[in-house]
C-alpha cells in the first residue's frame, strides 16, 4: 500500500504545528510560574470560585443530561410517535448551532420578560444572570452527548434478553432495572463524561446568560479572558493549565471506571 510517508508525515507535521506545539506552550508557560506561583493564582478566591462554579455547574448539567438523555434515548429507540424523525434531527442542534446564538437565545428565553423566564419569575425563580442560567446553558450544549452514546447501545440490547427475563418471572420494572440498566450503564457514564467535559470548557453559550458577576456567576473560561485583557498572561495560563489537568484527571478516572465495568461484561 503506497503513501505512508507523505500521509503520516503530513499528519504529524500538521498535528504538531496546530495542536501539540501550541498546547505544550501552555504548560511551558505555566511551568515558568513555578509551583508556588501556580498555587498562588489557583488558590486566589476569585479563581477558586470560578473553577468550582465551572466544574460544579457542569456536573449538575451533566447529571440532568444523563437523566433526561437516558429517557430521550429510550423513547426514541423503543417507541413510535408522530414527529419522531423531526425531533431526532433536532437532538443534534447543539452541535450545529453556534454557541453565541444559543447564548443570546437562551438569555432571551430565560430573562425576566422572556417566555420561560416570566413564568418562572412568578414562582420566584430567577434563571438568567444567576448560576442557574449557567446550568441551563451547559445542559443545552451537553444534551446530544448522552442521547447519542446511549442510543446505539440501547438498540443493541436484544429483545431476547427481556423476553428471557419475563419467562423467568421478572416483572417489567425488574427487567428494566436488572437486565437493561446494567447493559446500558457504561455508555451512560461515557455520555455523562463527554457532556461534562464539554460543559466545563463552554464559553459562548454561557457568558450571555451568566451575568458574569465575580465570585457568583463568573466561569473559569471567562476569567481566562479577563486575565488576558489585563495582560496577565501568566494568570490566564495558570487557570487554563488547571482546567486542562482537572478535566484530564476526571476523564481518566471515568475511563478507568468504565474499563472496570466493561471487564465484568
Amino acid at each position: 500500500m503506497p503513501g505512508l510517508t507523505p500521509t503520516l508525515g503530513f499528519t504529524l507535521f500538521y498535528l504538531g504545528m496546530i495542536v501539540l506545539i501550541p498546547l505544550a506552550g501552555v504548560f511551558f508557560k505555566a511551568s515558568g510560574l513555578g509551583f508556588a506561583g501556580l498555587w498562588k493564582v489557583i488558590t486566589s478566591e476569585r479563581v477558586l470560585a470560578a473553577l468550582s462554579l465551572s466544574f460544579g455547574a457542569a456536573a449538575i448539567a451533566a447529571v440532568l443530561n444523563a437523566i433526561f438523555g437516558a429517557i430521550v434515548a429510550w423513547v426514541f429507540v423503543r417507541y413510535e410517535f408522530p414527529g419522531k424523525r423531526l425531533f431526532d434531527a433536532f437532538i443534534d442542534l447543539p452541535f450545529a448551532l453556534p454557541t453565541a446564538v444559543a447564548g443570546i437565545a437562551l438569555t432571551a428565553l430565560y430573562s425576566e420578560n422572556g417566555w420561560i423566564g416570566s413564568v418562572l419569575a412568578h414562582a420566584g425563580i430567577k434563571v438568567a444572570y444567576t448560576p442557574l442560567g449557567i446550568i441551563v446553558a451547559m445542559t443545552f450544549i451537553g444534551l446530544p452527548f448522552v442521547v447519542r452514546t446511549v442510543e446505539p447501545v440501547l438498540r443493541e440490547v436484544e429483545r431476547d434478553l427481556e423476553e428471557a427475563a419475563a419467562t423467568l418471572g421478572a416483572r417489567r420494572w425488574q427487567t428494566v432495572l436488572r437486565v437493561i440498566a446494567p447493559a446500558v450503564f457504561p455508555s451512560l457514564v461515557t455520555g455523562f463524561a463527554l457532556s461534562f467535559a464539554r460543559a466545563v470548557g463552554e464559553y459562548g453559550s454561557v457568558i450571555f446568560i451568566a451575568g458574569n458577576f465575580p465570585m457568583v456567576s463568573e466561569i473559569a473560561p471567562l476569567l481566562i479572558i479577563i486575565k488576558l485583557e489585563e495582560f496577565d498572561y501568566k494568570g490566564a495560563t495558570a487557570v487554563a493549565a488547571t482546567m486542562l489537568v482537572l478535566s484530564f484527571l476526571l476523564l481518566l478516572t471515568i475511563n478507568l471506571l468504565q474499563a472496570w465495568v466493561r471487564r465484568r461484561v
Binding site: 431476547d160 434478553l161 423476553e163 428471557a164 446494567p182 465484568r264 461484561v265
Partner: peptide, 8 residues
Amino acid sequence: QQYALFKH
C-alpha cells in the same frame, strides 16, 4: 436460540 444469557 441465541441463549439470551444476561452478560453482566
